[in-house]
Computed example of a mutant assay.
Amino acid sequence: MSSPFFSIQKYIRQHHIKLQGLVLPILLLILWQYNAGRGASQAYAFVPLQSIYSAFITLLTNGELWLNTWGSLKKAALGIIIGSFSGILLGSLMAYSKVIHGFVSPLFNSIRQVPLLGLTPLIALWFGNGESAKVFIIALASFFPLVINTFQGLSQNEHKYHELAKIYQLSVWKEFQKIRLPQAQPYILTGLNLAVPFTWITTIASELLFNAGTGLGNLMMKAEVNAEMDIILVCAISVTLLGILMTTFVHLLAKRQLKWRPQNLT
């Protein structure tokens, strides 16, 4: 029977990477708190941790944090769903049709070079300053990586699988469903994983630019006007946590969909 000492050693060996990952954040928090105590000017830039906690409790109690978090989450989720499905559709059409690829590819590659936020004035003219404009910008953020990754994944069609589809007389749809889509899944899921941070960047940026309605970006803008740095930091932490949760969901989805692979790309 192994002793408790060896059990502890085994646990530490198994989790040492996770424990190492906590060292830097803890050191940064200590440094942050140290700078917060060096004077009033430093306390404004480096808000004491206890003030951030108090602001978090206040926003949680009065319902502002829930309301604005839900507002941002709705827009981010709707944007990434619309952008992802549109990107997968266009990427598939470009991979299957040389004609569509020839027509669409030059325009697509030109537009994707333009920073999304640089298109804001044009989008505002089309959709106004409401929720539609924000969702459109967010959808574009996930649209581009999904088009590229879907096209790359479906283009990696090995000749032997194409011959196999001919032998079994599979229709175009059956070949797509049984052969090409499983091959492309790692690429598509990688594209989805890349889309998550862009989604949250554009969600907050669109809320800051179109300062109307609910959202964490709107709450941050109001806090900036009132010089409430603690609220700004609470919003920033909330966005980080939401991004981590969405990324974790994508990783779990990839793990479930790619059980057949020895090692996941995502």
Rank of each mutant, 00 (worst) to 15 (best):
S105E: 15
V147H: 03
R13M: 05
W200P: 14
V47G: 05
L258M: 13
I111Y: 09
M221D: 14
T190D: 01
K160M: 12
A124E: 06
G243T: 05
F56K: 00
L219A: 02
I138R: 01
G71L: 00
F210E: 06
A195Q: 08
D230C: 07
Q42C: 08
L208V: 12
T202S: 09
F46G: 07
L59Y: 07
Y96V: 01
G37N: 08
L78E: 14
Y53R: 03
N226H: 15
T248R: 02
N218A: 00
G243M: 11
A36P: 13
S206A: 14
K98W: 05
H101D: 15
A223D: 09
S155A: 09
V47C: 04
L93E: 11
A133K: 04
A236K: 00
S51V: 01
G213I: 05
A124R: 12
Y44K: 09
I82G: 00
V250D: 09
M221S: 15
G215D: 11
I237R: 00
H16T: 03
A212W: 07
P182N: 00
T58C: 02
L22Q: 11
L241D: 08
I167M: 13
K98D: 10
Q20E: 08
T247Q: 14
L67V: 01
E131M: 06
I138D: 12
N226G: 07
F143D: 00
L170Q: 10
L242P: 13
M229W: 10
S54T: 13
G243W: 11
A124G: 03
K259G: 12
I179F: 12
P106I: 01
N211W: 05
L119G: 02
M221P: 09
I137K: 00
R261W: 08
F5R: 08
S155F: 00
I12C: 07
N68Y: 04
I81E: 01
T240I: 10
A77Y: 11
A223G: 12
L125F: 13
I123H: 10
L89V: 11
F56D: 02
G153I: 05
